[in-house]
Nucleic acid binder design. Structure first.
Lengths: 162, 162
DNA sequence: CCTTGATCCTGTAGTTGCTACAGATCCTAT
DNA sequence: ATAGGATCTGTAGCAACTACAGGATCAAGG
């Protein structure tokens, strides 16, 4: 096998985009908000990237795929940049993010249950009466065992105006 | 107990907000984007709402809670406004939204699995080595049975620059 | 060598769904 | 009458990008 001819460099912005799967414009955006460093420029002012940039942007993209917010990614990166990170601290942040992800899953599962239950009652016919519209129109139809504590005397029609 | 004196009216914007749980400013926003009708005004120009507005905003709020986008809500409302809705059509839209919700749940569950698996390997100690950082730094660590089809020769360090 | 088309540059506006502010007017209670 | 809330308008900000306009530059073909 031939010898490696050294660290790659001289990548254009489009190369970096292609290698990382990141949108071209987003690279500039990340530079603007300080997630990516200002790269060296060619004499004509074109950005020139190296493998270090590929690594860093790859890190950002994978964190994004895992749903980390920009703030969290920024925190992780600055820890690593400073070399002040420990597994314990990274794990702590990861666990916090996991909690957030699990909370979102629970919220969506609640929504899923209501939607599925309601839709199951739909007739699929041409009548205007619809269980889903009823649920959307009437708070009481949602949680039938919970009494509305404060509401206005109900009017005749749903979604009036026009 | 005194008799009900008819359909309510002359609600102020703050009243509507309180009755529906909607943010005060959001009401004006919904009016601006055409989700809520322009209400009648008092001589001095203050918005005056009635029970029909309470109903409509309640509809919007409940659709929001179920994760419908503004576009979907707009579609549902305009159907109902026109009186052209059928249970079949509403059900169709509801099922589509349910599909979207379920897809989101699956995405989040994938994320949850990767996070949980990775964090489980963390030592929680003071070392800088961390399985979670490894996963974020190295694409190969994510899907270990999938060969990277296109990537750059890897450099020494993760998250360089500084 | 020169042209042509692709790519790069900058700054700025649009997206979704709100939320919050500034500065002016108005209402309500004492 | 006056003090304090509440309302009015327009506009700016948030996350996290994405897309465009108008110009400069590069790379390949003739």
């Amino acid at each position: 096998m031939p010898a490696d001819h050294g660290i790659a460099s001289d990548l254009k912005r489009s190369d970096l985009a292609r290698l990382t799967g990141c949108n071209l414009e987003t690279i500039r955006y990340y530079e603007g908000v300080g997630l990516m460093p200002d790269p060296p420029r060619s004499p004509a002012g074109h950005r020139r990237y190296g493998s270090a940039h590929v690594e860093r942007l790859g890190f950002i993209m994978r964190a994004r795929e895992l749903g980390f917010t920009m703030k969290e990614i920024r925190g992780l990166l600055s820890m690593v940049d400073r070399g002040s990170h420990t597994c314990a601290e990274v794990e702590k942040r990861g666990r916090h993010h996991l909690d957030v992800v699990r909370a979102k899953i629970r919220d969506l599962q609640d929504i899923e249950a209501i939607l599925a239950d309601t839709i199951a009652k739909c007739s699929g016919s041409d009548t205007p009466e619809c269980p889903l519209l009823t649920v959307l129109s009437d708070a009481a139809a949602r949680s039938s065992n919970e009494v509305q504590t404060e509401s206005y005397p109900s009017a005749a029609t749903v979604a009036p105006g026009r």
